[in-house]
Amino acid sequence: MAEQVALSRTQVCGILREELFQGDAFHQSDTHIFIIMGASGDLAKKKIYPTIWWLFRDGLLPENTFIVGYARSRLTVADIRKQSEPFFKATPEEKLKLEDFFARNSYVAGQYDDAASYQRLNSHMNALHLGSQANRLFYLALPPTVYEAVTKNIHESCMSQIGWNRIIVEKPFGRDLQSSDRLSNHISSLFREDQIYRIDHYLGKEMVQNLMVLRFANRIFGPIWNRDNIACVILTFKEPFGTEGRGGYFDEFGIIRDVMQNHLLQMLCLVAMEKPASTNSDDVRDEKVKVLKCISEVQANNVVLGQYVGNPDGEGEATKGYLDDPTVPRGSTTATFAAVVLYVENERWDGVPFILRCGKALNERKAEVRLQFHDVAGDIFHQQCKRNELVIRVQPNEAVYTKMMTKKPGMFFNPEESELDLTYGNRYKNVKLPDAYERLILDVFCGSQMHFVRSDELREAWRIFTPLLHQIELEKPKPIPYIYGSRGPTEADELMKRVGFQYEGTYKWVNP
Rank of each mutant, 00 (worst) to 15 (best):
S106E: 09
V233T: 00
Y197C: 05
Y197I: 02
R17K: 13
R198Y: 07
G248D: 00
D181C: 12
P62G: 09
V150I: 10
L140S: 08
F21K: 15
G38Q: 00
I162T: 15
R74T: 09
H186C: 13
Y112I: 02
I52Q: 04
Y107I: 07
R81W: 10
Y197G: 04
H155P: 06
M212W: 07
N126Y: 11
I36W: 03
I187M: 13
A115K: 15
E93G: 11
L55A: 13
P86W: 06
D24G: 15
G222Q: 12
E99I: 08
S84L: 11
A149S: 15
T65K: 04
V146N: 05
A103L: 12
T236Q: 08
A231S: 14
S188T: 07
N126T: 14
I224W: 04
F237M: 09
L16W: 10
E193S: 07
K46H: 05
E85M: 13
G254Q: 05
F56W: 14
C13S: 12
Q11I: 13
G59V: 01
E85H: 07
N105Y: 09
P50E: 00
F241W: 10
F34K: 01
L214T: 06
S189L: 12
A116T: 12
T236H: 07
P50F: 00
L96K: 07
M125L: 12
E99K: 11
W164H: 08
P50H: 04
G41L: 01
I36T: 03
N226Q: 08
N135H: 12
I167F: 14
R198S: 00
P62T: 08
W225G: 02
P172Q: 02
F253Y: 13
I35C: 09
E170V: 01
D251E: 06
E93M: 11
K46T: 02
F21P: 09
L43M: 00
W225T: 01
L60P: 01
D113I: 06
I199G: 08
F34Q: 05
A44H: 03
Y197D: 00
G248L: 05
R182N: 15
I15E: 12
A6V: 15
M159W: 10
I167G: 01
L203D: 02
L98K: 05
L55F: 05
D24E: 11
Y118W: 14
P62D: 05
D42I: 00
G110N: 08
M212D: 02
N185P: 02
N185I: 10
I154R: 01
I48K: 00
L16G: 08
K82F: 11
L214W: 12
P62L: 07
Q119L: 11
A231N: 10
I255V: 15
C232K: 02
S73L: 04
R81Q: 08
S29W: 12
D113N: 09
Q178N: 14
R219N: 08
A116V: 11
V77Y: 09
Q22A: 14
Y49A: 05
K82E: 11
A141I: 03
R198L: 00
K97I: 14
F102V: 06
D30V: 09
P240A: 08
D251I: 01
I255L: 07
E94P: 02
Q195S: 11
T76Y: 07
N229D: 10
P172W: 03
K171A: 00
E170L: 01
T243I: 07
F102K: 03
A90T: 15
T31E: 12
H27W: 12
F88L: 15
M125S: 08
T151H: 09
K82G: 10
P223G: 08
I162H: 12
D79C: 08
Q11S: 13
P62C: 07
N185C: 13
F173W: 10
V68A: 05
R74M: 11
M159G: 09
V68L: 08
R246E: 02
R166D: 01
K95C: 11
E19Q: 12
Y202M: 00
D114G: 11
A231R: 11
Q133H: 13
Y202R: 00
N210D: 11
S106N: 09
R215K: 08
E3F: 07
G242P: 04
P143C: 06
L137A: 12
R57P: 00
V233S: 02
E18G: 14
R192L: 13
E148Q: 11
D114W: 10
H186E: 13
F138T: 05
A90W: 12
I162L: 14
G38R: 04
S188A: 15
A25R: 15
Y112Q: 02
R219K: 09
E93H: 12
S184V: 14
R175I: 08
D100W: 08
L121F: 09
N126G: 15
A103R: 13
P92H: 15
H27C: 06
C232R: 00
L96A: 12
L43Q: 04
K171F: 04
A115V: 15
Y70Q: 07
Q195R: 05
G23Q: 15
Q133K: 14
L61R: 01
A44K: 03
N105H: 13
K47E: 01
R81I: 10
A78I: 09
P86H: 11
I187V: 08
F191Y: 14
D113H: 14
A109H: 09
Q161Y: 15
S117V: 09
P144D: 02
M207R: 08
L235W: 03
A25P: 14
V77M: 11
F237E: 01
I52A: 10
R81K: 14
Y202P: 02
W164D: 08
F87Y: 12
M212V: 04
S106H: 14
L16P: 07
W53G: 00
Y139F: 09
F21A: 13
K171T: 03
S123G: 15
V169M: 06
S73A: 09
S160L: 07
N218P: 04
F26Y: 15
L20S: 07
E19P: 12
E239G: 04
R198C: 02
Y197L: 00
E63N: 11
G14Q: 15
N153S: 13
S73N: 06
F253H: 06
Q178A: 15
L98D: 00
R120E: 10
Q119W: 08
Q195H: 08
H32E: 08
G247S: 06
R175V: 06
A141N: 04
L98N: 01
P50D: 01
R227W: 05
S132P: 13
L203E: 00
S84H: 10
Q28H: 10
T91F: 08
D251F: 03
H201Q: 04
H201V: 03
S189F: 09
G41E: 00
Y49N: 02
S179E: 09
Q11V: 09
Q11H: 12
Y112E: 00
I52Y: 06
A2E: 11
D181S: 09
K205N: 00
I199N: 07
E244A: 14
I33Q: 07
T76G: 09
H32P: 07
G131V: 09
H129S: 10
F237G: 06
E148D: 13
K238N: 00
D42H: 01
K82Y: 12
I52M: 09
L140Y: 09
T76N: 13
I234G: 07
S106M: 09
P62I: 03
V68D: 00
F216D: 04
F138S: 00
F101I: 04
L55Y: 05
S188E: 12
S84A: 13
F56H: 06
L75Q: 10
I220G: 03
N165I: 08
N210V: 02
V77R: 10
D79S: 13
L60F: 12
I80Y: 06
K97E: 09
A115Y: 12
L128Y: 10
L60R: 08
F250W: 05
P172R: 01
G247K: 05
K47S: 01
I36E: 01
D200K: 03
Y49H: 00
Y112D: 00
R57Q: 05
F241I: 12
K171Y: 04
I154G: 01
L130Q: 15
R166G: 05
F26K: 11
Q119G: 08
A127H: 15
S189I: 07
N105E: 01
I15C: 07
E170F: 02
P144Q: 04
E206M: 08
K238I: 01
F66R: 13
F173R: 01
Y139Q: 06
A231C: 09
N229G: 06
L55E: 03
G204P: 01
G131E: 11
I48C: 04
V208M: 14
G163H: 06
L203H: 00
I15G: 08
E19G: 13
I35M: 08
W225C: 02
A217C: 10
K47Y: 11
A231V: 07
H155T: 09
Q28V: 10
M37Q: 04
S73C: 06
H27F: 12
D251L: 01
H32I: 09
A141P: 04
Q161M: 12
I224M: 13
K97H: 07
T91E: 11
L75I: 14
Q178Y: 10
R9I: 09
I35R: 06
N126C: 13
K46S: 03
G245L: 11
P86M: 10
F21S: 14
Q22L: 15
E156G: 15
